[in-house]
Design a protein around this nucleic acid. Structure first.
Lengths: 111, 111
DNA sequence: AGCTTTGTTGGCCAATCCGCCAACAAAGCT
DNA sequence: AGCTTTGTTGGCGGATTGGCCAACAAAGCT
């Protein structure tokens, strides 16, 4: 693979890396419903605020979310709504996998 | 975050994790053009075949690609074409970032 | 049967990621 | 000014990932 192509793939993979964590995915899902401050996201996730702050920093650096200050609070919102389109695709993939598994195991799955 | 929601996010993030590597992204891009054997992908990437095989295994396990045997060769192909739709979205994000950077840099050219 | 080609798996080690704590910074309140 | 709330950053261990080598397996040739 040529260095130029590799560099391009690296930039792209950075976006996927940013989304490759349950908490960060949760954040994106919540922000899709509306903007939220770090404090609220921290309460929802239930981890240390430093942990959540770092997750948000990763998402921001990837260009997926943006922030704005309001008093002592920092409010985050979704920057790239097209991310949610792919979420639907992933949902479909997971449903398909569950279906396949259900077929293999031939037992009930209450989802 | 409730355990059930966390589990759902974990399943989703597995798909993103699978795509969160330059070589694996390269594979997806190549397979979008047409099916290819491990040997060809190995030549294109330029890593050890064991490394490429593991990358393919990760993509397969995530439900993104599928394989089929043909003689001594194993031929991989894209299983979920909707992945490519998101690629376009990511491309757009990167272009936007480049644009922003260009804007910032063009405003500060005082040297 | 023996050799070659093609892939996969296990193991080792380096690099990266993750989550908590501690420390610090900024803004509002008393 | 001091205290509180809200966030960010640094750093430390533990867990995970990534890439190479070696070993093994399957199928095609000679």
């Amino acid at each position: 693979m040529e260095a130029q192509v590799y560099a391009q793939m690296e930039r792209k993979s950075a976006v996927f890396k940013a989304l490759a964590h349950p908490s960060r995915l949760f954040v994106v899902n919540e922000l899709a419903k509306g903007e939220k401050c770090v404090c609220e996201l921290t309460r929802m996730i239930g981890a240390d605020k430093s942990t959540v702050s770092k997750h948000l920093s990763i998402l921001k650096h990837a260009g997926i979310i943006q922030d704005r200050k309001e008093g002592t609070m920092v409010i985050y919102s979704l920057k790239t709504p097209c991310v949610m389109k792919f979420m639907a695709c992933v949902d479909g993939m997971i449903h398909e996998q569950v279906h396949e598994l259900a077929g293999i195991l031939s037992c009930n799955t209450n989802d």
